[in-house]
C-alpha cells in the first residue's frame, strides 16, 4: 500500500476527529467531569515525549519535540487514552501516559516500535494498577450514524488510513458475530446491530488497530494479522465474556508484527518525508 501524496499529515485529521468525539462526549454524554484526566493525559504525554525524545537523541532542546514531528503521534495516542480509559486517580493518568510514551522507546525492533502506544498504556494500567477500567457502554448506540459518517469521512479525506486493516478487522469481527448471534443463536437483527455499533469497537477499528507504525508492512501480512486479531477477539468476547477483548488481543498480538515483517518484506510506512523518519531512528 503506497502512501498517496497528501497535502496534510493524516494525523491532523485523526486529531480533529478524536477531538470531535471528545466534544461529543462533553456536550451530549456528560463527560465534563473528567476534564482533569484529559488534561493530565495530554499534558504529561507531551512532557514524557519531550523527555524520551531528548534522551533518545542525547540532546535537550525545546525544539526537539516539534522537530521530530512526534507531537502529532503523541496527541493522537493521548486522545485515544482520553476516549477510552477511565480512572479516578490522577497518578493513574500519569502512569498511563508514561507507559504510552516510553513503550515506544523501550520496546522496539529495527527502529519500529512493537506495541501500539495507547493500547499498551491502557492494557498496562488496567491490568497492573487495578484502578482503571474501560467503559464499553460509554458511547451508547444512538451516535452510530454520526460515528460512521465521521469515520468514513476520515478515510475519504486522508486516504492514508490503512483501510485494509479496518475492513479486515471489522469485517471479520462483524461476520463472526453475525454468524453467532443471528444465524446460530437466532437473536433478532437489532441485537446484532447493538453489538457492532458500540463506539468503542468503531474507535478501535478506525483509530487504534490502523496505526501504520505497529501493523505489518506487507499488505497480505497485514490483512491476515487483522483477521487473526478479529477472530481471537471474537472468541474472547462471545465465549469468555471478556470486555474490551480487541485491545487485549491487539497488545498480545503485536510481538508477531516483527516476525511477519521478517517474512513479508515490504516498504516501511512513513508518516512524513523520509529525512524526518531517519531522524527518529537515531
Amino acid at each position: 500500500m503506497q502512501l498517496k501524496a497528501n497535502r496534510w499529515d493524516a494525523r491532523y485529521f485523526q486529531m480533529a476527529f478524536q477531538v470531535t468525539f471528545l466534544c461529543y462526549g462533553f456536550i451530549f454524554l456528560h463527560w465534563g467531569t473528567e476534564w482533569l484526566n484529559y488534561f493530565l493525559f495530554i499534558g504529561t504525554g507531551l512532557l514524557f515525549q519531550f523527555i524520551a525524545n531528548s534522551i533518545d537523541k542525547r540532546k535537550f532542546s525545546i525544539t526537539s519535540l516539534a522537530l521530530g514531528g512526534s507531537w502529532k503521534s503523541v496527541l493522537v495516542s493521548c486522545l485515544s487514552l482520553c476516549l477510552l480509559l477511565k480512572t479516578n486517580d490522577w497518578y493513574i493518568c500519569i502512569a498511563a501516559s508514561a507507559v504510552t510514551i516510553f513503550s515506544k522507546y523501550i520496546f522496539r525492533y529495527k527502529g519500529k516500535h512493537i506495541f501500539n502506544p495507547s493500547a499498551m498504556g491502557i492494557a498496562a494500567v488496567v491490568y497492573l494498577s487495578g484502578n482503571a477500567w474501560i467503559s464499553p457502554g460509554q458511547w451508547g448506540s444512538n451516535m452510530v450514524l454520526f460515528f460512521a459518517i465521521i469515520c468514513l469521512g476520515c478515510i475519504v479525506v486522508t486516504k492514508v488510513q490503512k483501510l485494509d486493516v479496518t475492513i479486515a478487522f471489522l469485517g471479520t469481527f462483524a461476520a463472526l458475530l453475525f454468524a453467532r448471534q443471528i444465524v446460530y443463536l437466532g437473536w433478532p437483527t437489532d441485537f446484532f446491530v447493538q453489538s457492532v455499533t458500540t463506539g468503542g469497537l468503531l474507535l478501535f477499528s478506525f483509530f487504534m488497530i490502523t496505526d501504520p507504525k505497529t501493523t505489518p508492512d506487507h499488505p497480505v501480512a497485514r490483512i491476515v494479522w487483522a483477521i487473526t486479531v478479529a477472530a481471537v477477539a471474537f472468541y474472547l468476547t462471545a465465549f469468555k465474556f471478556i470486555n474490551g477483548a480487541p485491545i487485549w488481543v491487539l497488545v498480545c498480538s503485536q510481538p508477531l508484527v516483527p516476525v511477519l515483517d521478517h517474512f513479508f518484506k515490504a516498504k516501511r510506512f512513513e508518516w512524513e518525508k523520509p529525512f524526518l523518519e531517519l531522524r527518529s531512528l537515531l
Binding site: H30, G130, S135, P136, G137, S141, T198, N243
Partner: peptide, 14 residues
C-alpha cells in the same frame, strides 16, 4: 468487593 458495577452494553448515566 472492588467498586461500582456498570452496564457494558448500555450507556451509564448518573
Amino acid at each position: 468487593k472492588k467498586g461500582r458495577i456498570e452496564c457494558t452494553n448500555y450507556r451509564n448515566v448518573n
